[in-house]
Design a protein around this nucleic acid. Structure first.
Length: 443
DNA sequence: TCTGGGGTCCTAGGACCC
DNA sequence: TCTGGGGTCCTAGGACCC
């Protein structure tokens, strides 16, 4: 992989830049504790159900990778140092990282904490050379943050991202090979990559889609360039088919989007020991609701849609959601809705994960106006104090309606079951490996 | 070896309105 | 009496990304 010096692209040839910090969480931990340097370090859950979120290159030499179950990582590397993660600290570094990018151009789009895409086209008037800008950016990140990174340049997001991946260090036969630091995808390289890359290197092709494509006989990006779109759409859906065929021709219309609005937020937890009683599940709903409403308030948002996800030990998951006529951001309301939703799920097996998510956001201020409007139409208000208490009444009446609605949607019988379970306390007992609950016997 | 927690987007079907 | 087609919103599930 070489970029000869004469091949210095113009902004038209390399308008999109992608930066990716190396082993971000693990690198921050090493910066904060230099005694970790040179050791196999990773950040992630150490418990039985934990996975690796970030691994130092020393850990990667032993085969440890992010998204790998921690038990596997420990087997591959018994001396692995596993750290729980300090996400506030990573966010601080992430802000500093974005601030350095912002000095180059404000036209950037973050992806997670450790990546950004930037559109360099607005720098045309300044006579910016993309390769020089990329090297300078990389050097500033090294100097000011003491973090390593890879930078990719390309005609679009597709190639910029493939390039930054290529620019990074990688492990070959247990040995670390330095990356190039900055990679520009020249037209020659585009052709070479489109011909030689496996389908799973494309954005959006994960294990499931890769398997489907393999079964259809498509292993390489070049194979996808010859496919009939309608045929592919029958197997992957129309959006995925159109996207992959575009990518296979080197086309990617995605723009660098500034100031993307948050669309949902939530909290979920995989329990080290699965929950086996309704009381435990309801208590977790309350806990999750607290986390979610604090995040909502920090964003100045209220959410109209509340969703819960329950994942069982067999990894099967069930979701329930309800869209309210008003937004919520208080713990009691969020807890009520979450608990009503979770009661509509048949909890006959141990619960491995519980998730609670909020979406369909409204501005907090807009929501108050709406609640006030409801009040004013019905009443002649004489004081702010009364208005506030009436708002609460309206809100709780609407909330009652919403809870009734959830019960209605899942039928009177499921309400009855839920009520019975509630009254008697759900018991899930292990009986010769199977589970039963309440008076109903084995399920 | 057996899969986290933060998110995004897509699909399909049903309800409802015009 | 039976029937249309499009648009929007909502719900459940699935796949993917970092």
């Amino acid at each position: 992989m070489s970029n000869s010096p004469v091949e210095s692209p113009s902004l038209e040839e390399a308008p999109i830049l992608h930066v990716d910090l190396d082993a971000f969480f693990a690198s921050v931990e090493i910066l904060d504790d230099p005694t970790l340097r040179g050791k196999p370090v990773c950040v992630g859950g150490a418990a039985e159900r934990g996975v690796i979120a970030s691994a130092s290159y020393e850990a990667r030499r032993h085969g440890v990778r992010s998204a790998m179950p921690s038990v596997v990582a420990r087997r591959l590397c018994p001396e692995l140092i596993m750290l729980p993660g300090r996400f506030d600290r990573y966010e601080e570094y992430s802000h500093r990282f974005r601030s350095v990018v912002n000095d180059l151009t404000p036209n950037y789009e973050p992806l997670g904490l450790d990546e950004v895409f930037a559109d360099l086209r607005s720098l045309r008037r300044l006579g910016v050379n993309p390769l020089e800008a990329a090297w300078k950016l990389r050097q500033r990140i090294r100097d000011e943050l003491k973090l390593e990174c890879g930078v990719g340049l390309g005609r679009n997001k597709l190639f910029a991202k493939l390039a930054s991946k290529k620019s990074k260090p990688h492990v070959v036969n247990g040995e670390l090979v330095e990356g190039d630091g900055v990679v520009w995808v020249s037209p020659d390289l585009e052709r070479q990559w489109l011909a030689q890359l496996p389908v799973q290197s494309l954005w959006g092709v994960g294990p499931q889609t890769a398997q489907k494509l393999h079964q259809l006989g498509f292993r390489w990006v070049r194979d996808l360039a010859k496919v009939d779109e309608a045929t592919l759409a029958r197997h992957l859906g129309s959006a995925m088919a159109a996207t992959l065929i575009s990518y296979a021709h080197g086309e990617d219309e995605r723009s660098v989007e500034l100031n993307r609005e948050l669309k949902s937020l939530g909290h979920d937890e995989t329990f080290a020991i699965s929950l086996t009683t309704l009381d435990q599940v309801l208590a977790q709903c309350r806990h999750h609701a607290g986390v979610v409403v604090r995040a909502l308030r920090a964003q100045g948002r209220v959410a109209r849609t509340v969703s819960v996800v329950v994942k069982f030990d067999d990894l099967q998951s069930v979701s329930r959601s309800q869209t309210l006529p008003f937004g919520v951001d208080d713990e009691a309301a969020m807890t009520s809705v979450a608990q009503a939703l979770v009661r509509s799920v048949e909890l006959s097996r141990p619960v491995r994960l519980l998730g609670l998510y909020a979406s369909s956001f409204l501005d907090r201020a807009a929501n108050q106006v709406q609640l006030s409007f409801d009040v004013v139409t019905g009443t002649d208000l004489r004081s702010q104090a009364i208005e506030v208490s009436r708002e609460q009444q309206v809100s709780s009446a609407s909330l009652r309606d919403a809870l009734d609605d959830i019960r209605r949607r899942y039928g009177a019988s499921s309400v009855g079951v839920a009520a019975d379970i509630d009254a008697q306390g759900l018991r899930i007992e292990r009986q010769r490996g199977s589970h039963s609950f309440g008076p109903e016997g084995p399920v």
